[in-house]
Write a protein that binds this DNA or RNA. Structure first.
Length: 697
DNA sequence: ATAGGGTTAG
């Protein structure tokens, strides 16, 4: 090891003694001047006086100096203070050297800290703690743990302070076994009741994702404080148990403790992830009540919570308060509009932003992709490239999504090249986006080659992407093979099953479909509402309505999408009266609001059964009763229904009241109906229109 | 004298 910085200063200092004339000749005057500077926070001045005074100072002054060096992270000054101490105080007390170690640690200079620690003629427990803490606080967890082992070997007893520091290091490297030993040690040494140690244990177990251990430790803490609660809420959030995170947040109030701003935002993130609007709103209420609405982080979290719950109006309300307008919340709002389909509004907001970063740009880009505006997306990418220097892996994934959406394999290959050159290729997200691009664009060969190249680091998502590629291109047989290969490497998830079932439905592959269904049941997969829909679709498409109904009946809750699946499935299997019956069950008994897809099914059923009266009744009920604006396909269905039934007067009235011009297929259908059932006035009207279509003026 | 959690956007 070379000459230390401190010792150089040291020599400098002793030479200076001989030549420089100090302003102060007595320690008392110098001390009070230094103290004055310290009080004013002028560390540099204080150290200058110290350095120019060739005599020792009281220990308390050195303490104060080291403390200020620590809090302001002033490394050079810390070295000067240490040299002065070493020069004029031949045997400095251990506690002062400990303060020096601490200062070096706070300055991030582990080398100086360790050098001093190693060179100390004598150490006390505080020296070990200062050094261990220095390692811990600078992220050198393994060094901290090693030093703890040395401490044990040297016969020094670890104190509560030591253990707190060590537990923090354990947490950062997930040293579970070590932590359990420390836990035992804490119990053995009678440190139970120390809330810091116990909260740290909760923290370590939580970081190791052992929430049962974390929770039972938490429950044992007698005098929990806000940090203890923050830890448990945060760890529940991190393991994906948002429900428990939020529940714990509310339980905190029973102990009359006030959550810190960290805990507020952690609880709000949990609400965001679960789209728990009610709980989120309650937390908002508390935020207002305790006067934290102006807190920038909390209001940003509130905005994002409302955004993720899909209540843009609420989000906007919070966003209007000036204190909540920052880069982050602004980006949340852009993202909200961008992904809710209002790209124009998003862009407007984006243009108004006082500052933007790559995340804001990505949020806007995601909007164009969300609404399949590939041209606009590409244009935006160009603008982005000329406006900001850095793009990141998310940008690259988004650009790949644009290639996927617009089936632009050529551009996708260019991105692949860029990704390769810039070293982004080893990123799993990008790797999977590339795979998805090749797969969905139908370049299955490239997809397979890339998938093979990813073999060392691919994951479940990669397998699902490969599966989707084959399923989408009608290769359900190969998809089934991939499914069995996949199981050698990873477990399938709901996405896998939904993809496979979709493939089976498209191929009418009932046997494969049944196999998948059986697999899910045998392996106890939770069949959620999406998978139920996929099963219903598959059985309906494969003409096994019996099974579809069975699946449908056994599900706990049904949303409108699931009802639509079964209703359309009934129509598909020509069980139209059943479809109508199910519609009544859905609207009357379960109180589910039908949407435009539901009515497509219902009108189709009426058409199949030639129920013109009922069809009209349902059509009218759409806007009158259910607030569903009829779309083109509904009008088409009605035209078909009237035409088929020969209600020519009604058809004429209907077509005249239509809010948009009839399409050519519609006109042709009407014309044929006129020919069949006879209605010269309508026939003439249609003929003129058709003629206009063929020979525009 | 020395110790724990550390929050917001794609």
């Amino acid at each position: 090891m070379g000459v230390s910085a401190a010792s150089i200063l040291n020599r400098l200092l002793s030479r200076k003694n001989l030549t420089a004339r100090s302003e102060f000749t007595d320690a008392n005057a110098a001390t009070s001047t230094i103290l004055r500077y310290l009080e004013e926070g002028r560390l540099g001045k204080a150290v200058l006086i110290l350095f120019n005074s060739p005599f020792p100072f009281p220990h308390t002054l050195y303490t104060r100096l080291f403390q200020l060096c620590s809090s302001t992270r002033a490394l050079v000054e810390a070295r000067k203070v240490e040299s002065h101490l070493a020069t004029f105080c031949p045997t400095p007390p251990i506690f002062l050297l400990n303060r020096a170690i601490e200062a070096y640690g706070k300055c991030g200079c582990l080398k100086d800290a360790r050098e001093l620690f190693d060179e100390m003629p004598q150490r006390d427990g505080g020296s070990w703690n200062a050094m261990i803490t220095a390692y811990t606080q600078n992220g050198y967890a393994l060094e901290a743990l090693n030093l703890y082992l040395d401490l044990n070997k040297s016969g020094v007893y670890a104190t509560e302070v030591t253990l707190a520091s060590i537990l923090r290091s354990c947490g950062s490297v997930l040293a579970l076994h070590f932590s359990r030993q420390i836990h035992g040690h804490i119990v053995k040494c009678g440190f139970v009741g120390n809330v810091i140690l116990e909260s740290s244990l909760v923290d370590v177990y939580g970081k190791c994702r052992l929430m049962n251990d974390a929770r039972s430790m938490f429950d044992e803490i007698q005098n929990r404080n806000d940090v203890s609660w923050n830890v448990i809420v945060r760890r529940y959030l991190e393991v994906g148990n948002g429900k428990e995170a939020v529940s714990m947040f509310f339980q905190m109030f029973r102990e009359s403790l006030m959550p810190s701003s960290f805990t507020f935002s952690n609880a709000l993130i949990a609400c965001s992830r679960m789209a728990a609007l009610i709980e989120g709103g309650q937390i908002h209420g508390i935020v207002v009540k305790v006067g934290l609405e102006e807190n920038e982080v909390i209001s940003s979290s509130l905005i994002d919570m409302y955004v993720k719950c899909g209540t843009l109006a609420n989000a906007h309300q919070v966003f209007t308060q000036p204190s909540s307008r920052n880069l982050i919340s602004w980006t949340s709002m852009v993202y909200a509009y961008a992904t809710s389909g209002d790209v124009l509004k998003a862009r407007e907001l984006f243009n108004e932003m006082p500052e933007r970063n790559v995340i804001s740009w990505n949020a806007m880009l995601a909007g164009y992709i969300h609404s399949s505006q590939w041209e606009e997306a590409l244009e935006f990418v160009h603008l982005m490239r000329s406006s900001i220097k850095d793009i990141d892996r998310t940008t690259l994934c988004l650009i790949l999504n644009v290639c996927t959406g617009s089936s632009d394999v050529e551009r996708g290959k260019q991105v692949h090249g860029f990704v390769y050159r810039t070293g982004f290729y080893a990123n799993l997200y990008i790797g999977n986006a590339l795979l998805d691009m090749y797969g969905k664009c139908g370049n299955l060969k490239s997809a397979k080659v890339w998938f093979y190249q990813m073999s060392q680091w691919r994951d479940k998502v990669s397998w699902n992407a490969l599966l989707t590629a084959h399923a989408r291109h009608g290769m359900s047989e190969q998809a089934m093979t991939i499914f069995s290969e996949m199981q050698l490497e990873t477990d399938p998830n709901n996405f896998t099953f939904a993809t496979l079932l979709g493939a089976c439905a498209n191929m009418f592959a009932l046997e494969h479909g049944k196999q998948i269904h059986g697999f899910m049941v045998r392996n106890n997969y939770a069949i959620d509402i999406v998978l139920t829909g996929a099963l219903v679709d598959m059985y309906c498409k494969c003409r096994e309505l019996k099974y579809a109904l069975k699946v449908f009946e056994h599900v706990a809750s049904r949303d409108v999408v699931l009802w639509n699946s079964i209703i359309l499935g009934c129509c598909h299997n020509r069980r139209d009266m059943l479809a109508i019956k199910l519609f009544q069950l859905m609207t009357m008994e379960e109180g589910i609001k039908p949407d435009h897809v539901t009515f497509q099914g219902i009108l189709l059923a009426c058409l199949h059964e030639n129920l013109v009266e009922l069809g009209r009744k349902y059509f009218d009920s759409m806007s009158e009763k259910f607030c569903v604006i009829p779309r083109l396909e509904h009008y088409e269905c009605m035209v078909e229904l009237y035409g088929q039934h020969g209600n020519m007067d009604e058809l004429e009235k209907f077509i005249n009241n239509m809010p948009f011009d009839p399409t050519v297929p519609m006109l042709e259908r009407i014309f044929n109906a006129c020919r069949e059932h006879g209605h010269s006035r309508l026939a003439e009207w249609v003929a003129i229109r058709l003629n206009e279509q063929n020979f525009p003026k």
